[in-house]
């Protein structure tokens, strides 16, 4: 499934924030390679720097030093217009708080990226309906975000992130504001999209339900990568633990 081509690479990624006259390091040199078609979870406690890493990979914030390569393009070399193009076409974003535009209907929210991409209204609506059907909300297209449940809003957000056929979907705590059952559904949907559409999914999370569907898990602690585990290893460990319990 995962070919050996890199879709995201980071080299020596550092990010420092100044709080008053104190400098806080959120990232201390992160080198991370992510293959095309992979489902990667970035895990770590809050304050570990995973959201900062997420923002740097997504081009939402500039790192203090180090570089991020998306499809072998150094993000620091892009001008505003090229960066906007990248955000529009190559990356799809999913947020913990859904971040739908409250004044627009589900369909309008999903079609908005296609408007920015210069797609005609008819094509945009067609694409929007196709995606809403894909996430199982085809019949709620005219509803405003306030008229949808949290899980449904997140589905709309997922549909929106896919609008322009991105090669990467970045999800920042996608299940953080959802209950257990809805969270599981959203994770299943993401995995389904990853498997069927070949989208690379990078998710910052501390939801352990994510472990099960991820190809690799990147553990972050204090701004550095503590360890990277493949799913097979983790399953093995869980198996061992169960085996021990049986004795």
């Amino acid at each position: 499934m995962a070919s050996q081509e890199y879709v995201v690479r980071t080299r020596g990624l550092m990010k420092q924030y100044t709080m008053g006259n104190q400098t806080v390091s959120a990232l201390n040199g992160v080198d991370l390679d992510i293959y095309r078609g992979e489902y990667v979870s970035i895990m770590g406690p809050s304050g570990s720097g995973k959201s900062t890493l997420f923002n740097a990979i997504g081009g939402l914030d500039k790192p203090t030093s180090g570089s991020v390569f998306i499809n072998d393009v150094d993000m620091a070399q892009l001008d505003a217009q090229e960066l906007a193009y990248l955000r529009c076409h190559t990356i799809g974003y999913i947020f913990q708080t859904f971040n739908l535009i409250p004044v627009m209907t589900a369909l309008e929210n999903v079609t908005l990226p296609t408007v920015f991409a210069g797609m005609s209204t008819d094509d945009g609506i067609e694409r929007g309906m196709e995606l809403l059907n894909l996430v199982g909300l085809g019949d709620r297209y005219h509803h405003k975000p306030s008229e949808l449940s949290g899980g449904q809003q997140q589905r709309v957000a997922i549909a929106r992130s896919l609008a322009n056929h991105p090669s990467i979907v970045l999800a920042d705590e996608p299940t953080g504001n959802l209950d257990l059952k809805t969270g599981t559904e959203i994770i299943e949907l993401l995995k389904h999209l990853n498997r069927d559409q070949g989208v690379t999914i990078i998710s910052a999370t501390h939801d352990l339900k994510m472990v099960d569907v991820s190809d690799r898990i990147v553990w972050i602690r204090d701004g550095v990568i503590a360890k990277i585990e493949a799913r097979e290893d983790i399953e093995l460990k869980i198996g061992e633990m169960e085996g021990e319990l049986a004795h």
Binding site: G58, Q81, A84, R87, Y93, N99, L112, F116, A117, N164
Partner: peptide
């Protein structure tokens, strides 16, 4: 927040 979201979706500052 809405502005931030729009920029994530590919909107330019000028837009």
């Amino acid at each position: 927040k809405e502005i931030g979201t729009m920029k994530c979706l590919g909107a330019l500052d000028s837009l």
